[in-house]
Design a protein around this nucleic acid. Structure first.
Lengths: 349, 349
DNA sequence: ATGAAAGCGCTAACAG
DNA sequence: CTGTTAGCGCTTTCAT
């Protein structure tokens, strides 16, 4: 059975040269090692005929470099993460790297497990949007000098490079917009607690209030996940409050979908009965029954920069000063915010 | 520097046993090889202390099995594919396999390149939603006895297993629905030509007409990609036709978004001015300004079945009879179809 | 009950 | 200009 894949050895045997020479010729090192034109050509020719292509397992084992990066995200079906994934994969491919993908489903256990799996597969580096509640495994990786870049979520007091949106500023502007439109009872439906995007957005929400001397009603800050169900459930409950909030600041696109569902079930209209602004712009946002005013993130750029940052670390062995990068967000004005007539602002900055 | 990762050798050295023994103990073969309880325990203990975990590169090289599968899709940011990706990854993980992901961007070149990359990395099998215009590379893989499963797109006269929706039937029902509502000038905005989902949907569109003795106006079958731009451009053009089509059958969710954009730009309303039905149900479909009537696919199941099919092939070496699996679609009735008053049907079945 | 040795396919140090 | 040798970390014959 010569039916198995061609190897350096099989080529060498066939041509009566050594494996080394074949390896050198095929790696474009003919000049450096002064391989005769003749030998080189016959090797290249044979390789082509046999459709030789190198076994990356063997190569990786020998070189301790696999041109593979591990990528862990909490939910690939969330369009925000999907579009980041697209740009990560594309950038990585451009530089000759492949992606091993894991969806952690917002579970720290799966995240840890996947991380270990990737290490065993000797990825050259990791891009990860951590679930965000535990960090020990990430620190451990970093201490092993395996390059790692956090994406979307970071840890303020941890020395790991990250790329994320300026969630604080984005939330601040979003809530400011509501306040400027006369809203003072603004609900905030938050995502997974103790993740940086959530923390920063909630902080922005609060500071927007404080800046305008508005008191913060903690009972209006609700929810605990980035998913649609959370948006639905919390909105159902919010709409039973008395007095009703006049506006909702929703911390993710999926939460908003759930909120919209609840609002429409209750027979209410956006923005007539309740105003809304949502994080994450999506292609469909403008076509919703009420076109949604959103805080748009630069997802493509986030993916590109994270990949760049990682590959820099991988290819220049020296570990850079870990840097954190915040990308600006942009408010996209549509029709989901109504001016609130019951203006009761104590003061308008 | 004993700082590097622990290996079988380092454990063996430390304990004064052989690598073989360590390997056996850690692979749960202590009984089979009658390793003494004492030795076994001290090996397990040491492995735990050192946080040993096996180098999968080395293992894969030796075993010719990597527990990795390659997954190639044309657009991970398309929510249809994203949700399939989620289920593929999840199923694979459940059975101990990791995913190498590539986005071919609907380019046959990238697809081929990625395929080769994956083969070099010795994946145990491949799941691929081929761009669909060329098959030679897929056939070649299959002939090397590397398990492969096509997902979403298949080739009717090619002997490769596949999983897809019953696109023909789905389209037939969709267009029937339009016809039953009195529409006879129905535009079809199609996706990438010569891909099976597109072909089958267009075939369904045509047969629905033929079944009701309606003539097919080829000039109403337009478009050439599954993306949003295509939907936008083709709808812009369609709306300049005279007489206007009274309904649109859109072959993908992204096409529909583009179509909606064009329709709203032209100051028209769905369904008052033009009716619409779209392939692919999405979480947001019901919240569009006109809740969209859609043909829903079982994306999660498609992913699960494809993975199952592949793993079956991988784990029982024998190559099964390649089978094609069609999953039923379901029409989800909403508000985007209006009864057409100008009933001019020659006959109603 | 355990080990020595070979080899998966590749590259690099060293030797001519 | 080319080859020999060693070794990456693992599993598996074959010995004992």
């Amino acid at each position: 059975m010569k039916n198995s894949n061609p190897t350096l050895k099989s080529i060498a045997l066939k041509l009566g040269v050594s494996v080394t020479t074949v390896s050198r010729a095929l790696n474009g090192k003919s000049n450096r090692y002064r391989i005769s034109k003749e030998t080189e050509l016959k090797i290249l020719k044979a390789a082509k005929e046999l459709a030789y292509s190198p076994n990356q397992l063997a190569r990786g084992l020998r070189l301790k470099r696999t041109n593979t990066i591990g990528y862990i995200i909490p939910d690939i079906s969330n369009p925000f993460f999907a579009s980041i994934a697209k740009s990560v994969e594309k950038s990585a491919r451009k530089f000759g790297y492949s992606i091993i993908l894991c969806d952690s489903e917002e579970s720290t256990d799966i995240e840890k497990e996947s991380l270990q799996l990737m290490l065993n597969r000797k990825v050259d580096g990791l891009i990860i949007s951590p679930v965000g509640l535990e960090v020990s495994h990430l620190v451990a990786v970093s201490q092993k000098n395996i390059p790692i870049v956090l994406l979307d979520r970071y840890f303020p007091n941890l020395n790991l490079p990250f790329v994320t949106s300026d969630n604080y500023q984005g939330a601040l502007e979003a809530v400011n917009l509501l306040i400027e439109n006369g809203h003072t009872r603004i609900a905030c439906i938050q995502g997974l607690k103790n993740t940086s995007p959530n923390n920063d957005r909630v902080r922005g929400y609060k500071d927007a209030h404080l800046n305008k001397q508005l008191t913060i009603d903690e009972s209006l800050i609700v929810g605990d996940s980035f998913g649609e169900d959370n948006g639905y459930i919390e909105t159902k409950l919010l709409l039973r409050k008395n007095p009703l909030p006049t506006a909702i600041f929703s911390v993710s696109n999926l939460i908003s979908l759930g909120a919209i569902r609840a609002i429409s079930e209750e027979g209410l209209k956006i923005p007539e009965d309740i105003s809304m602004i949502s994080f994450d712009d999506q292609p469909y946002s403008r076509f919703l029954s009420t076109p949604m005013t959103t805080v748009s993130q630069q997802s493509t750029q986030i993916g590109q920069i994270a990949t760049k940052l990682l590959l820099d670390q991988i290819e220049s062995k020296r570990s850079h000063d870990p840097q954190g990068i915040f990308l600006p967000t942009k408010i996209i004005l549509r029709d989901s915010i109504k001016r609130n007539i019951n203006l009761k602002l104590k003061s308008i900055g």
